[in-house]
Design a binder for these strands. Structure first.
Length: 737
RNA sequence: GGGCCCGUAGCCUAGCCAGGAGAGGGCGCCGGCCUCCGGAGCCGGAGAUCCCGGGUUCAAAUCCCGGCGGGCCCGCCA
């Protein structure tokens, strides 16, 4: 198609010159700059594609357009009829509309696809280059939820796409196993285990640990918040007393009512419950009566009240989450509650665990790796169901990462890129370095580059530092020439810091080839997710929900099939649907998802259905199973490319041919724009267009031989492409459904 | 306070970077279609101030400026 477009556009300058006398170079310039271009027509009756000619006709009296246009159409037709397979050129109010011979097009693309040339050309893009895709890398402290699931599916789909494009792809999972979060989990697990509370037998280990982690975290946070709230209340009373004094000496611009409220509070300073009741009311009163900048003392009070309100709100949210978990897991809750005497004690213990791990104490490290690996096994189980596999897991605690991290700090200090700041921590000041290195300036532009610490005053490294080390590892040890980090968008800054440091350390090529594949959050309707509070919709739940909704539909159809078969179909379709939902929205946009409506989003099912139907045609025509004998199907189809002519293509058929033509372009675009959602969208459109075609026209039973040949070709090409797309999307393949 | 991203029918989404004809799809809703390669489908219908206001242009959902609304980032956290 694009070939014919190019062909026609190539002749346009000549036609314009012959009719209007405008120099060929002028039209060529318009084409080159994109002012003139071909685009599909809005209605197939107008033709197959059109060119908006207004830029050329601009100088001509509008009354003459139709005459000039007709001449142009005639001239262009004469020039392109033979060479570009053009059948008709029309001029309609400023547009040149062109109809082309689909017989020729179908013949030529069939040969391209059936000979495998299309796929081969696509593979030449990567040409065996080694690309690493790091994805998922979820903290091993709770089960994978929809957010991590989006990461997995985007990463896995992109990796599969890269493979189709001929890259030598390796997928890696980076295990954050020495952070505070893991230490918190281990701290909680030790308490729960020593209290003799056991995991319910049917609960996955990652879900169990998720509960323990959340409750531990909640109890600690509650302790912290209680202390902060008490402090705020003290501040509040102090300020209130001050203001009350001003009020009673009549030196205040506050209303009488507000003054009285404030005084009441300061007199009742010992009745805490009463105070909290007033806090909100006074805050509202102050906000409505005080103008900014008038009275610093009162503004201070307003600020304190606002902070108090926020703290209370947060406390409440933790408490609610705690209640919910305690309801289902009362033994866990009481074990933790009774053992965690104070949050300070708990935090000290957690810090000790962290330090022990970073100092590579054998006992601590063993404990860490045991716990983390248990959770990772849970992850693997979930991911395998989804069809997501990794070539390897890399541990943050590994000597390769930790040693290199310290090396990175030393190198930066030696190179003068980092310095020791007050207190002894090591900092990189990118603001200064951005002045010297344009690369860094551009990286952060138009924002300030900022500064960041890479080694704490106690000598331990930070997450970024270890991430820098890991990046070096990916390039130097794993031998990547290109790295994609599928990481949430909120880490954009950290990823830029990472690139900046790589650049400073002389890894310039590596910095250029390190790509932050950013994706936005998943927003659940009616639930705010928070791993720290144990609030999440897990992938395991999502898969079950999807499977149940599909099974329900299957059973409703009252098919006389074995339950075992139904279950298998439901399971496969559930995976397809789940993956489809998670990849359906462009990574750069927030994915809004309502778990209650999971049965309504059926992108995966629609694609599978078209795939199954196309297989049915091949089965009935030749008695062949496409999934077992692809080569044979292709071989038989090649015979159909010979000798069909004079077929009038219907608009449904033309649409499918157009779709088929787009395949290579879609893959390239999805790759360049890092947008796996485009693959899904394309597959969906192909499936919809195929369903329409299939429903409307007979394939095997078509009487006209040429038309039958054309339809078989279209069907097999669709089948081939759907098969490739399903590979990329990572759906399990079905024969029937 | 500074920086980035997003705003398209009841809901979700494409188109925006490279401006062109009636803003494509899907879900949901209403009405039809199973003697016909498997109806998880097809056909038809209703439903949109393309967030608002300016500007550039023959032409703006698209580009520019200014608002409004939502998200994210600016830690000796990970």
């Amino acid at each position: 198609m694009y070939e014919t477009w190019k062909c026609v556009l190539g002749k346009l300058p000549e036609a314009v010159y012959r009719v209007l006398g405008i120099e060929r170079a002028v039209t060529q310039e318009l084409l080159a700059s994109g002012k003139l271009k071909a685009a599909p027509t809005p209605d197939p009756r107008l033709g197959d594609f059109g060119v908006a000619l207004q830029p050329v006709l601009k100088g001509i009296n509008y009354a003459k357009w139709s005459i000039v246009g007709a001449d142009l159409a005639r001239e262009l037709y004469a020039l392109t009829h033979d060479e570009c397979w053009v059948e008709k050129v029309d001029f309609v109010n400023g547009y040149l509309n062109i109809a082309i011979n689909y017989n020729q097009i179908l013949k030529s693309i069939s040969e391209e696809f059936l000979s495998g040339r299309v796929f081969k050309e696509l593979r030449s893009i990567g040409g065996g280059e080694k690309a690493i895709v790091e994805h998922t890398s979820a903290n091993p402290v709770h089960p994978l939820h929809v957010g991590s699931g989006r990461n997995s599916v985007i990463g896995d789909t992109f990796a599969r796409l890269l493979e189709k494009l001929g890259f030598n792809v390796e997928t890696r999972f980076y295990v954050n196993d020495i952070g505070r979060q893991v230490a918190t989990l281990i701290y909680g697990v030790r308490i729960v285990e020593s209290s003799g509370v056991e995991k319910p037998r049917d609960l996955k280990i990652d879900h169990w640990y998720g509960v323990i982690y959340a409750l531990t975290n909640i109890i600690i946070e509650q302790g912290k918040l209680r202390e902060a709230i008490n402090g705020k209340i003290r501040d509040f009373i102090e300020r209130a007393s001050e203001i009350c004094d001003v009020c009673s000496s009549r030196g205040s611009e506050l209303t009488r009512e507000t003054c009285l409220e404030i005084c009441e509070v300061s007199w009742k300073r010992n009745y805490k419950v009463e105070l909290l009741k007033y806090a909100g009311r006074i805050y509202k009163l102050l906000k409505s009566t005080v103008k900014p900048g008038e009275n610093p003392a009162i503004e201070n009070l307003t600020r304190i009240l606002k902070e108090l309100r926020d703290l209370l709100r947060e406390y409440r949210s933790f408490t609610r989450a705690g209640w919910k978990l305690a309801l289902y897991y009362p033994e866990v809750y009481s074990a933790l509650k009774s053992s965690i005497k104070s949050y300070r004690e708990a935090e000290e213990e957690i810090t000790r665990l962290m330090l022990g791990a970073e100092r590579e104490e054998p006992g601590t490290l063993q404990l860490f790796s045991k716990t983390v690996n248990e959770v990772l096994n849970g992850f693997r189980e979930t991911l395998n169901k989804l069809g997501v596999y990794f070539n390897g897991f890399d541990y943050e605690s590994s000597p390769e990462v930790l040693k290199t991290a310290h090396q990175v700090v030393d190198d930066l200090l030696r190179g003068g890129y980092a310095r020791i700041i007050e207190g002894g921590a090591v900092e990189v000041n990118l603001d200064e370095l951005a002045e010297r290195y344009d690369y860094i300036k551009r990286l952060f532009h138009p924002d300030r580059a900022g500064r960041f610490v890479i080694r704490r005053s106690d000598g331990t490294t930070l997450y970024v530092t270890r991430d820098i080390a890991y990046s070096i590892y990916k390039f130097k040890v794993l031998g990547a020439s290109r790295v994609y980090n599928v990481i949430a968008i909120e880490q954009t800054r950290e990823q830029k810091q990472l690139k900046a440091v790589l650049y400073l350390l002389g890894y310039r090529r590596e910095a250029e080839n390190l790509d932050h594949f950013a994706y936005e959050m998943v927003h659940l309707k009616g639930l705010r997710m928070s791993g720290r509070r144990g609030l999440y919709y897990t992938i395991d739940e999502m898969l079950v929900d999807a499977e149940l909704s599909i099974l329900k539909k299957l059973i409703e159809k009252e098919e006389k099939r074995e339950l075992r078969d139904l279950l298998e179909i439901a399971e496969k379709l559930a995976v397809a649907n789940t993956r489809a939902i998670l990849v359906s929205v462009d990574p750069g946009k927030v994915l809004v998802f309502d778990p209650g409506k999971i049965s309504e989003v059926e992108y995966g099912v629609m694609i599978q259905y078209a795939f199954v139907r196309a297989q049915g045609v091949v089965r009935n025509l030749w008695g062949l199973e496409f999934l077992d004998s692809r080569e044979e199907v292709v071989g038989k189809t090649i015979e159909y490319t010979r000798g069909f002519e004079g077929v009038d293509f219907t608009s449904e058929e033309k649409k499918l041919v157009d779709d088929i033509l787009k395949y290579p372009l879609v893959l390239k675009t999805a790759y360049i724009e890092k947008s796996p959602s485009k693959i899904l969208e394309y597959a969906l459109n192909l499936a919809i267009d195929f369903n329409k075609f299939y429903e409307k026209y007979p394939v095997i039973s078509e009487k006209n031989e040429n038309a039958r040949k054309a339809r078989v070709l279209i069907t097999v090409l669709t089948l081939l492409i759907l098969s490739e797309l399903i590979d990329i999307l990572g759906f399990p393949k079905l024969r029937r459904m």
